[in-house]
Design a protein around this nucleic acid. Structure first.
Length: 158
DNA sequence: GCCAACGTTGGC
DNA sequence: GCCAACGTTGGC
């Protein structure tokens, strides 16, 4: 069985790798972009490994690894009026609520946080999406090779 | 806080 | 279906 690899972005003030370590498992709710939704719905599978990326923080970068333990299912937060992720259109949509979540489990927090600067400085990661200018997608596919390189960077001494 | 990049909306 | 206006993302 071959598994894909992913990079999921989260603002650590909202939900960090430490929160996931504490919780053990979490539902990755609140994705409200169709391209990211399609990845969650169509391509994310149980057992896939995820780079947990801290965005909108200083420094931004990869904080650790998580694993998908439940494949795509409806994101109920879209239908809850009091929820910050409420989408008033979701309940009226032709096909019902279009938004999807997956469940993640904690795998590891890197001994060394891998900064965006370090990702950009690594020649082997030249095709990594997250380093591209203007790349805002919150769910991104990562190649097997790039994933392995980043995990090694997270454990590198020095 | 700024602003470039990008996605979405809505008038036409 | 075009595209200008608007809102959001996210690095800096």
């Amino acid at each position: 069985m071959h598994h894909r690899h992913w990079l999921f972005k989260s603002e650590p003030d909202v939900y960090s790798i430490d929160d996931l370590q504490r919780d053990g498992v979490t539902a990755w709710e609140g994705v409200r972009n169709y391209q990211a939704r399609n990845f969650l719905r169509d391509d994310c599978a149980v057992g896939d490994l995820v780079l947990f990326y801290h965005s909108s923080t200083d420094p931004a970068g990869v904080a650790g690894v998580a694993k998908i333990v439940k494949a795509g299912y409806p994101d109920a937060t879209a239908l809850k009026k009091k929820d910050p992720h409420y989408d008033p259109k979701a309940s009226k949509a032709d096909g019902g609520n279009p938004w999807v979540t997956v469940d993640l489990t904690f795998v590891q927090k890197f001994p060394r946080f891998v900064t965006l600067e370090a990702l950009k400085a690594e020649p082997r990661l030249k095709d990594l999406l997250v380093i591209k200018r203007g790349q805002r997608l919150s769910i991104q596919p990562v190649s097997d090779a790039d994933f392995q390189v980043i995990v090694k960077m997270g454990h590198r001494k020095g």
